[in-house]
Design a protein around this nucleic acid. Structure first.
Lengths: 257, 257
DNA sequence: ATAATAGTGTCTCTCAGACACTATACC
DNA sequence: GGTATAGTGTCTGAGAGACACTATTAT
């Protein structure tokens, strides 16, 4: 086969594809989206997870997800999953990676397109008491900074005890942390985790939480101001017990250089 | 719905999912992989494309692809597509992004997991005369360097005339170029496009081809040698009409810092 | 010897990190 | 005034770009 790349077999396969193939003819993988809704609060990286009530992986924590409808795009399916399972919409949402190991779900073949979403924790705190199965769970992320792998990740309860994740969702969250660390410096990641107006200290806290290490204050300030991505508002924070910092806002995505 | 996130509807949906859902019950998207097999030759970025013989998009050029089998992983499907359609295997292969717009294929709903593969053009030249429909086509990539978007991309024939791409494959190749530019500095991209032993000049040519701009010779040499990712072999190129350069080899992926 | 590219030494500029200092709020 | 954090000015070291120079091969 290596010597004759274009065999009859490959040609008929191609023709079957080109002829307009009937999707119901042989078994296909099922297709879902799973969304890691991530936020940073109190120096901790957290995600909204749903505790499973049924086997398999009963009692373990899973990402909110849904099947992909026959007429909706993947982005739309991810938005619908967030709206339906967490009751939130109009937030930053981006495709991460597609997970398709044949044994990742023991019931049947399920390929899952994973997304991550970012949200200001202030937008999330209301309404979470409604369902005890859905909670904001702290993530354990190994390593620090851009170079190192973060996962797999697991959940942590209030006492720092391990909460197991369902299926390969620990791997998914590990890749989310890695991706956030990698894109932090050149994509509007940090701003999505803060209110519209924020101080440079708050933004630095977000960066430190994602990277898992401390950053230099002076260098961080200079770099962010020089980036042209934020603008001073002239307003200042209030009642903080010390000199109030100026509030900045994100100017929106724009090209540099 | 925004006020009450956890409605009865979402709960029953969850239960249906948890109960172990029958995949054949309602229509699913079909799932394929498409692979951009990319190489750099003569200062041009090229990809292996297949000219379509049938409608839709008849005569246009498409990425080699295949349906995802029910028992194979996505990576395995991508490898199989390369083996079956191009007759090549054991090369660098990495998942890119999953394309799922409902109208991307006019026949039926097809979600495609796109991959990119990198290969030394020396490994590819043999055997391409066998099928005229499968050719190595130059890519038009806009912009330069990391910051700028590259796509959508189209093909170019020997005379520089535009060759239209099928479906959304121009968008896929645009994202491939973007990804290569972004990962070039910290992932073993360049080495995969060269023989095992190469000169620094060859490696710099590869980088310049991918980025679409010239690089500083001195700085490039220092940076690559200091990176610790390559090792001098002591051998030199031969019969080049000028001072022969030393041959280097890639030391393999390893962590720094 | 000449042409052409490989490879080295050094200067400068930019930027991150570090440190010291001043500024301004609440108590 | 005391305390805590905001914000500024300046020095230093690392690394990229630029340039000049030397080295080595084929013709």
């Amino acid at each position: 086969m290596a010597k004759k790349p274009f065999t009859t077999a490959s040609t008929t396969d191609e023709q079957a594809f080109l002829a307009g193939y009937d999707a119901s003819q042989f078994p296909h993988p099922s297709l879902t989206v799973d969304v890691a809704l991530v936020t940073a609060d109190g120096g901790k990286l957290k995600a909204v997870l749903v505790q499973r009530e049924q086997h398999p992986a009963r009692g373990k924590w899973a990402l909110p997800g849904t099947f992909v409808g026959i007429r909706e795009s993947l982005d739309e399916a991810a938005q619908r999953a967030l709206q339906t399972k967490v009751g939130i919409s109009r937030i930053f949402l981006e495709q991460l990676y597609t997970f398709g190991q044949p044994d990742r779900d023991p019931r049947t073949r399920v390929v899952s397109v994973a997304y991550y979403a970012l949200v200001d924790p202030g937008k999330l705190t209301k309404g979470f008491a409604a369902d005890q199965r859905t909670q904001l769970i702290e993530l354990s992320a190994k390593g620090t900074g851009k170079g190192q792998a973060a996962g797999p990740v697991h959940g942590l309860d209030e006492q720092g005890k391990r909460l197991p994740l369902a299926f390969d969702h620990g791997d998914i969250l590990g890749m989310v942390v890695e991706r956030l660390r990698g894109k932090l410096d050149y994509a509007p990641i940090g701003f999505e985790l803060l209110p519209k107006k924020f101080t440079l200290r708050q933004l630095q806290d977000i960066h430190e939480t994602i990277l898992g290490r401390k950053l230099n204050k002076d260098s961080f300030r200079r770099r962010l101001i020089a980036s042209g991505r934020i603008a001073a508002t002239g307003e200042h924070e209030q009642a903080v017990g010390h000199r109030p910092a100026e509030l900045y806002r994100f100017k929106g995505t724009q090209q540099r250089h």
